[in-house]
Design a protein around this nucleic acid. Structure first.
Length: 426
DNA sequence: TCTGGGGTCCTAGGACCC
DNA sequence: TCTGGGGTCCTAGGACCC
């Protein structure tokens, strides 16, 4: 045999953010619950009970507020510190069950189960579910198949029919199942490809599986071909076992209320720079390019839309907050136009490399550098010890009138001692 | 009034070189 | 005045993911 038969499980947490909120508030169990995106903008997690009410993923909150109130749906602002911490616990538990695991997102992971006998797969899956539920309190669904794309489909089916686990390896109905998967539900097929496939008479996963290799190569790119091959059971997307360091770092936020003054944009861009610089220092990286962008709301009916960005190439690689803020503010001045109601601002650091990849050159200022490095270390240490933004720059603003809305936060943070729920013993 | 944030990869096309 | 062919590298923008 040319290739060994893979056995891949995709473990995906059910309504992950909602499940995290339920952990610390059992009264939410069996009730409709939703979690909102940052700025309390859109729905990004729904309990089954909320789905039944017809609340859709990604829907703007203000559009369904009435429905929410009428049905007494519990609403939460997102609390990423909590979700990140719970995610780490889930992943740590999963690692016990497979020698190879790829953490694919905050709430899902691929496990290599090739060493498990076919007849034992289902039972093993149940053991994984039970253990994760017992140790972390988070319910999961599992899909098992020979390729990542098929395991995604198996998982999708498990979630849809609430059957906990779907195993396609021991199934003789794979084709029948693929017939029921709509083309846009296939992993890697987005809006554009869906449109294209449907135009060409391909509307289910089964039809994509049976399209000729020639046609798919001619009409799509390598990614399209890969997906089609994976549906046939030929593994083309391998497990990524080591997390590579990121190549770019973006920090951006919508404003709690619209911003018109340059001064306030400056504050937010400064705050985003400090944030991003701290992130890349944490990974021992530095950047060669910074992009600043601002835009008005694309949904605003009246008033002109304005969106602009400025790239700035830095003379030397850096992760120095002061330098990055300085450059970003120069860029901001360039693209700022008076008279617009800005909705969002952000920065992107790109071309990230490990420190010292970008060697000193003519423009570096060696005498200053050591002192700056120590200053940055002191800032990072303080903020790590006493909480984010304990130490900041005056330029980042004190009032922050533009800051996020976060009206419905559970305020629970298992990664921070002083925010842990306390129990009084009498 | 109110519509998230953070990533990766691919491709076409321009700049540049011999 | 005539003005090829082939290669590399970089970047912006698009598509996709959660």
């Amino acid at each position: 045999m040319l290739y060994s038969k893979n056995k891949i499980a995709l473990v995906d947490c059910n309504s992950f953010y909602v499940s995290c909120e339920r952990l610390f508030n059992p009264s939410l169990i069996k009730k409709p619950v939703v979690v909102l995106s940052s700025n309390d903008g859109c729905i990004i997690s729904r309990s089954d009970e909320a789905k039944v009410l017809g609340i859709k993923m990604g829907e703007p909150y203000f559009k369904i507020r009435e429905l929410v109130e009428k049905n007494n749906v519990k609403v939460f602002s997102s609390n990423y510190s909590l979700y990140g911490d719970i995610s780490r616990r889930v992943m740590k538990t999963l690692k016990q069950f497979a020698p190879q695991i790829e953490i694919y997102s905050i709430d899902e992971a691929f496990l290599n189960l090739s060493s498990i006998k076919n007849e034992d797969l289902l039972e093993y899956g149940h053991k994984i579910r039970k253990t994760v539920l017992k140790w972390t309190g988070i319910p999961t669904s599992i899909g098992i198949a020979t390729t990542k794309t098929l395991s995604k489909i198996a998982n999708h089916k498990a979630k849809k029919e609430r059957s906990d686990i779907v195993d396609l390896i021991n199934s003789d109905e794979v084709d029948k199942i693929l017939t029921k998967i709509k083309i846009n539900e296939v992993w890697g097929v987005g809006k554009q490809l869906t449109k294209f496939y449907i135009k060409n008479g391909i509307s289910t996963a089964y039809e994509l599986k049976n399209i000729s290799n020639n046609w798919i190569k001619k009409n799509t790119n390598v990614l399209g071909s890969r997906t089609a091959m994976e549906l046939k059971g030929i593994s083309c997307i391998s497990m990524e076992l080591h997390r590579e360091k990121r190549k770019s770092c973006c920090v951006s936020r919508s404003f709690g209320k619209k911003v018109t003054r340059l001064e306030e944009l400056k504050e937010s861009i400064t705050a985003h720079c400090l944030n991003a610089a701290e992130k890349i220092r944490h990974e021992n990286q530095e950047t060669k390019k910074i992009t600043v962008f601002i835009r008005t709301s694309p949904f605003q009916k009246y008033g002109n839309y304005y969106s602009n960005a400025k790239n700035i190439d830095l003379p030397i690689g850096t992760n120095d907050s002061i330098e990055l803020v300085k450059q970003a503010l120069i860029g901001l001045k360039d693209i700022y136009k008076k008279g617009y109601k800005y909705q969002k601002a952000g920065i992107i650091l790109s071309g990230l490399k490990d420190i010292d990849t970008y060697k000193e050159n003519l423009f570096s200022n060696a005498t200053n550098e050591e002192g700056r490095k120590k200053l940055m270390q002191a800032i990072d240490y303080t903020n790590n010890r006493y909480g984010r933004n304990s130490l900041s720059f005056a330029q980042a603003g004190l009032k922050k009138r533009w800051n996020l809305r976060k009206q419905y936060s559970s305020k629970i943070d298992t990664a921070s001692f002083h925010l842990l729920p306390s129990v009084r013993i009498i």
